[in-house]
């Protein structure tokens, strides 16, 4: 199949960027979207043009590295898939495909389609963990955990930290990502104890990083490759509310 790509090119952070058009001819429908870009890059290299920079690593939808805005949808049109799991058979011969980086103040562009998501790491560093050090912990079966609790936790824990929620949100809000972590740890007996501190600290950092607020649009959930449920956001709101009323300093 033959396609036309409109791709965002930008030398480096802070420099001016622009959309550039490239042909992508005789592409096989079996290819993954990123393999299609590999081919385009190979050809650019042959013509002495610098290849398009984009992030990817595992190429099987688990590392969260790939991050492309495809035709105005993070990770493209398919539900519950990351960019690297998208295949060309979902496009039509002759299509024009618009490819952009995640756009958010908190995710500055590094080059072309590559952005800096270290804001997410700083949110986790602010309290996205259970405060135990190595050693001196009880036996794994000492504390029983109801299966459905473990499942709820696992549903939230499957977040791959890709940032599509931020990219999709009209407010560039990081609520779904933050809520997923708060839920993953907060429902488990091991993580409950720190639940309130965690909510306060994560939200504080989230705001510092310059993400927007949540208007409950629901775009994040629709774009999320792991389909993290919106309930997690309600849970974060509740934990935050409870933490605030119960916190000593008023």
């Amino acid at each position: 199949m033959n396609l036309t790509l409109r791709v965002w090119r930008q030398e480096a952070a802070g420099t001016e960027g622009r959309m550039v058009t490239y042909p992508a001819n005789d592409i096989s429908p079996e290819m993954s979207f990123l393999e299609m870009l590999d081919v385009v890059n190979e050809r650019l290299n042959d013509d002495g043009k610098e290849p398009i920079a984009f992030d990817s690593d595992c190429r099987e939808g688990i590392c969260g590295m790939c991050s492309l805005m495809i035709n105005g949808q993070p990770h493209g049109p398919m539900k519950g898939t990351a960019t690297c799991q998208l295949h060309m058979r979902t496009f039509q011969d002759g299509d024009t495909i618009v490819i952009e980086p995640w756009r958010a103040k908190a995710f500055p562009v590094v080059r072309d389609l590559v952005v800096d998501r270290s804001a997410f790491d700083r949110v986790i560093e602010a309290g996205g963990f259970i405060s135990v050090s190595t050693g001196g912990v009880p036996d794994a079966n000492e504390i029983l955990i109801p299966k459905d609790t473990a499942d709820t936790s696992m549903d939230a824990a499957s977040c791959i930290g890709c940032g599509a929620c931020v990219a999709a949100c009209p407010n560039a809000s990081a609520m779904l990502f933050t809520a997923a972590k708060v839920t993953h740890l907060g429902v488990l007996p091991q993580g409950k104890l720190e639940r309130h501190r965690r909510a306060l600290n994560l939200v504080a950092q989230m705001d510092i990083e310059g993400f927007g607020g949540c208007t409950n649009y629901g775009e994040c959930h629709a774009a999320c490759p792991k389909e993290i449920p919106l309930d997690t956001i309600a849970r974060l709101n509740r934990d935050y509310l409870l933490a605030s009323v119960s916190s000593p300093e008023i």
Binding site: G72, E100, K105, N171, A172, G213
Partner: peptide, 12 residues
């Protein structure tokens, strides 16, 4: 805040 949170708009 929401306006500031996305300085560059999407083309699409």
């Amino acid at each position: 805040l929401d306006r500031l949170s996305r300085p560059v708009e999407y083309a699409k």
